[in-house]
Amino acid sequence: MKYLVTDDSKLARLSLIKSLKSQVGDAEIFQATNGFEAIEIMQKEKVDIVFLDLTMPEMNGYEALPKLLEINNKAKIVVVSADVQVQAKQRVIELGAQLHVQKPINVEKMQELLEII
């Protein structure tokens, strides 16, 4: 399995990767700091699960999400965001995300969401 963690914050990436590694061990994990970088990685790698932040510079998660699915429509997109408004959750699901999860993701939450998807 290949994973892609997309967030402009180093803290958010490190925190998510730590939780992810606790569940998937030495799986291949790529990192991107905005939508453009995520797209570049998706074009080169067959990523299975993408963790995607919404509020990012250059290209945000809303813009990146459909583009990532255009490249690989089998990839599962998990939106990991601080924006917990109902409309934000609805919008990302409409755009094709599998799940919307509130930041931060600890080990227990990661275990639960990997079981769900």
Partner: peptide
């Protein structure tokens, strides 16, 4: 910035609920 982002996300949801409106979040 990330801690603030998490805190502000929850705050916005509370205010959006109060105003029955949708807010866009910025960095």
């Amino acid at each position: 910035q990330e801690l603030m982002n998490v805190a502000y996300g929850s705050t916005t949801a509370v205010v959006a609920d109060m105003l029955d409106a949708f807010a866009s979040l910025s960095i």
